[in-house]
Design a binder for these strands. Structure first.
Length: 561
RNA sequence: UGGGCGGUCGACUAAUGGUAGGUCAAGUGCCUUUGGAGCACUUUGUCUAGGUUCGAAUCCUAGCCGCCCAGCCA
């Protein structure tokens, strides 16, 4: 593959930070990690983190580990572990090491012993409610636990017994002894271990105590010699604690750097809420094409390139912004425009009969596969007396600036002939169900020898050759720009767009699509990009609309009102 | 109200004391066998008020506004 011109790399603070660390000698290598918790499917927000973690390391000749942050057995599952690996690869990245925080449970346990021996950690008998009470508030300092000053021996004994299962869940914790009066709540003797009798997806029932995020994450980073541990902004308050643990232990000084999460209009990026949509069957699953998950977007027809380009264009900073959905769609169209073969499909069929076309005649018309890609070649499409066109492409009474078919008007059938509408047939309801036309035999292929022009070109499918298909038309999943914003007493599902899915069960496709393979992407000319769904059956394909083409007629029409 | 982090076109993001630029969106025109794509052009911005400086988005001071933190979630 020919390498194209190097993409412009706008500077950002992460890139500068890494470059600076290397220059000053703070680190001599670059090691990053992508640390998903296996409690849900990856979404476009994770794609940003992935592009940053993998992309930046790669730029500086460093490595990236995939590390599952599996310290909470109650929420985690191997189904997620598998999907995450698949999605990271699909996005186009590969990891150096594949690790689990649970791989380090023994080491982390030993380090806890070390802190206890150093008088830096203690077993607390306070229950959850009491811990909260003692923590104080944002404006008031906390109180020290009455168990805070136990002897090292007693702490060691109690901690061992916690590990051995001598105490009920939630009855005791191991806490770091830091400062109950700190203005940073994370430093008010944070909990390092909780007692939890839950089966872990990897360690099974070996452990009855589990380390918290704060106690496990930095230590896992340090074990892996991570130099730049990038995470989202809300962890900034945890940084002092991250550093405190590493300093007390005297281990490899990994460093945490925070950046802003991705947010997109009309899109929810909360694993908890996404899980709720799945559980409540508001969507067909994690890979429902309306979901912002990578698996959903894949099924919808989004390409990894488009997603990566989008992420790069959005950039990274420390502000909490919200990107317009249109930007994502732009990059999807941009990529698909270059690569998706064009094809003709009629979604809402209207029968056309060409009165002067010979009965029973079929012509194979040449059609270009992709005008953007000369290498894509061409195909033939059968033409005959009876065709389908789009209902939208005929108006008995055309509004101003409507250039498509209407009584007496001539249009071009793409790759076919010029036709002129002569008469219409209506049903009992007064709806047009058939349009009779004549064609000009001299315009085969779409050009008139006399040089006359038509204002419009419309797509069509030969009725006798058409492949019946189901087409799933998607709109935004939510009708509110901020789906999380809700009225009193409501929850976010109230913002679900009731029209996010329209199923068209009788679409007519050109015959080349009869056996299209699942995952294949096409442009249906003049309509949009569509992707073959795995639900397809032989002879009855199912397509998902990835994204519509930009429709300037829709704009004109809207403006006219 | 304690602490932390931020405020640049409608959106996202550059400019690192020296011409406020790019992408998306919006608009206008050209072109077109997709009302697609493409091309050209255009509109709109440094939170506020002071200060330092020849010169400030950038440095200083004071405000204002927004986000995050009181899980034994991550």
């Amino acid at each position: 593959m020919a390498s194209s011109a190097p993409e412009p790399r706008p500077s950002n603070f992460l890139r500068e930070k890494i470059a600076d660390d290397l220059k000053t000698g703070k680190y001599h290598h670059v090691q990053t990690r992508f640390p998903p918790e296996p409690n849900g499917y990856l979404h476009i927000g994770h794609a940003k983190a992935i592009c940053i973690d993998f992309g930046l390391a790669d730029e500086f000749g460093g490595k990236t580990n995939l590390r599952f942050d599996d310290t909470n057995p109650e929420k985690e599952d191997t189904e997620y572990v598998d999907s995450i690996q698949q999605d990271v690869r699909w996005l186009g990245f590969d990891w150096e090491g594949l690790y689990y925080a649970s791989d380090y449970f023994d080491q982390i346990y030993d380090w806890a012993i070390q802190l206890i021996k150093a008088g830096k950690a203690y077993v607390d008998d306070l229950n959850a409610d009491q811990v909260r009470e003692y923590r104080g508030t944002l404006t008031q300092p906390g109180k020290e636990s009455p168990y805070r000053n136990r002897s090292v021996e007693e702490n060691l004994d109690l901690f061992t017994r916690m590990k051995n299962g001598e105490f009920p869940d939630g009855s005791r914790t191991l806490r770091a002894k830091i400062d109950m009066a700190s203005p940073n709540l994370n430093m008010r003797d944070p909990i390092m271990y909780r007692i939890l009798r839950a089966e872990h997806h990897r360690t099974g029932n070996k452990w009855l105590i589990y380390p918290t995020y704060d106690w496990a994450h930095g230590q896992s980073d340090s074990i892996e010699k991570v130099t730049h541990s990038m995470c989202s902004l809300e962890f900034a308050d945890h940084q002092p604690l991250y550093n405190w643990f590493i300093e007390q232990l005297g281990i490899f000084p990994s460093q945490q750097i925070e950046f802003d999460r991705l947010a997109i209009t009309y899109t929810l990026l909360s694993k908890r809420k996404l899980l709720q949509l799945v559980n409540e069957k508001r969507v067909s699953g994690w890979d429902d094409p309306r979901m912002p998950t990578l698996s959903g977007m894949r099924r919808r027809g989004y390409t990894p390139e488009a997603i990566r380009n989008f992420i790069a264009a959005v950039g990274v900073s420390r502000t909490n912004g919200i990107v317009e959905l249109e930007m994502l769609e732009h990059f999807v169209r941009e990529d698909l425009n270059k690569h998706a073969p064009r094809v003709m499909a009629v979604l809402k069929p209207l029968k056309i009969v060409i009165d002067n076309y010979p009965e029973g005649q079929v012509e194979q018309m040449d059609a270009v596969n992709n005008p953007e890609d000369p290498n894509a070649g061409s195909r033939t499409v059968p033409f005959s007396k009876t065709l389908y066109i789009e209902q939208d492409d005929f108006r008995e009474v055309p509004p101003p600036k409507y250039f498509r078919l209407s009584p007496g008007k001539e249009v071009r059938l793409r790759y076919g002939y010029f036709i002129t509408a002569k008469s219409i047939v209506k049903n009992a309801l007064g709806e047009v169900i058939e349009v009779h036309c004549t064609y000009d035999p001299s315009t085969r292929g779409g050009n008139a020898p006399d040089g006359r022009k038509v204002k419009s070109t419309i797509h069509w499918v030969s009725a006798a050759h058409a492949v019946d298909a189901e087409v799933r038309m998607y709109e935004k999943l939510f009708s509110k720009e901020d789906p999380g914003a809700v009225e009193e007493g409501q929850n976010f599902t109230a913002n679900l767009n009731p029209n996010s899915l329209e199923i068209i069960s009788d679409a007519k496709l050109e015959p080349s699509l009869a056996n299209a393979a699942a995952g294949t992407r096409y442009q249906f000319e003049r309509l949009g990009y569509f992707c073959v769904d795995p639900d397809s059956k032989a002879g009855k394909p199912v397509f998902n609309r990835t994204v519509a083409l930009k429709d300037s007629w829709a704009k004109i029409e809207k403006k006219g009102r």
